[in-house]
Amino acid sequence: MDLAKHWRLRHARYRLEGQRNRLTGEVRFPPAPPHPGEAEEIWEPYVLSGRGRVYSFSIVRQPPEGFEDQPPYLVALVRLDEGPMVTAQLTDCDLDQAAIDMPVEMVTRRLRDLGPTGLIVYGYKFRPMVQR
């Protein structure tokens, strides 16, 4: 039961909370400890917009353990509007619909179900933009 590992990442996973540099305005995701010599308070929590574009994508057909019930599923590198790139699944997206540069938005979904004696792990995925 790796409860602590999932729990401590909840802000980043659930709401795409990264960090912003108070001096330069640079936004980074995932959040990280300050580099050696950097004051801890330089990086403040910052929730990213969740908007971005697909940098690349693939379809997983041979899944790792724990994902056996999911294939085929789309995975992607997404370039977020604020600059950082993230790895995540694409959801609500047909396999033949995914495309490089496709605009996507973040949604919070179930990433994994650790079974009847475990947690449901929730986190960010991306989907084609819903019309506004």
């Binding site: 690349s56 994508f57 693939s58 790792p64 990433l111």
Partner: peptide
């Protein structure tokens, strides 16, 4: 086990495999 070579917190938790990461690079 092979996916242990990816980042557990930010890649593997999304069901990404090493093969899929290479596939992402190939497509790009």
């Amino acid at each position: 086990a092979l996916a242990l070579a990816t980042d557990a917190d930010w890649e593997a938790i999304h069901g990404v495999t090493l093969t899929a990461l290479w596939a992402l690079l190939m497509r790009r």
